[in-house]
Design a binder for these strands. Sequence first.
DNA 1: ATGGCAGAAGCATTCTGA
Length: 272
Amino acid sequence: MLIATWNVNSIRTRLSQIIDWINEKNPDILCLQETKVMDDSFPIEPFERLGYSVEIYGQKSYNGVAIISKIKAENTKKGFYGCINFDQNIEMFLDQKRIISADINGIKFINVYVPNGSSLESGKFEYKINWLSCLASFLDEQEQKGELICLMGDFNIAPSNLDIHDPKKYEGGIMASEIERNALNNVLKGRLIDTFRIFEKDTGHWSWWDYRNNAYELNKGWRIDHIYISNELSSKLKSCVIDSSPRANLRPSDHAPVMINLDLDNINEEFF
DNA sequence: ATGGCAGAAGCATTCTGA
């Protein structure tokens, strides 16, 4: 089962590139971020023609997430719905459409677009840390229910300095601060593993390159798009790759898709 | 410290992103 995540930076601008990529890779599940469109304007038909069903949670201009899947998703939840462990006011998170989750093949897929945070001094940074705290509560609830998890998306955090092309320049700053890394680790809590790092221990692998300063041509990137899975699924994990090729397209997204291969053939016998 | 590049909204320019 091929499972992918891709921040496409506008579904409408990137539609033909996404369709081309689906035809090439044939993913079973594709989670999108930054669709930047309201639900009634989301181009569902091109995906349905290819045999996919589509779950969307969008808004005008900003944010927006979607789950495209061959097997129809069930129990779709949009936003921090049912976040009973969270003692803060979640009202502040309702206007930004950044999380959608659904059950497919006995696994809860959680697709996130984590706020960028702008800079450590910004109010947006506080929002980012609070948002991650709410995500941690959301994950706690799933764990209490015994769910098998695949948490994926654009996290806007480089988990370590190996994930930054120039750590001396950027460490401690936005996307590379201890505060953000601690907040991310509080989501993962050792129960979720970074699938990319199972296969690749070295630096030099990026999922995002700034549009500016010729960053892609100079290969000055960051690894901020991640796929995490429950420890219990680790024996099913066959690969994790970043496909940087779409970043070389004309009018590309600034992010590249990340994809795992999960062998779920016998999962029902094993877990249920 | 700032801007650089890109997309959306909407029609000049601003806001936002990372």
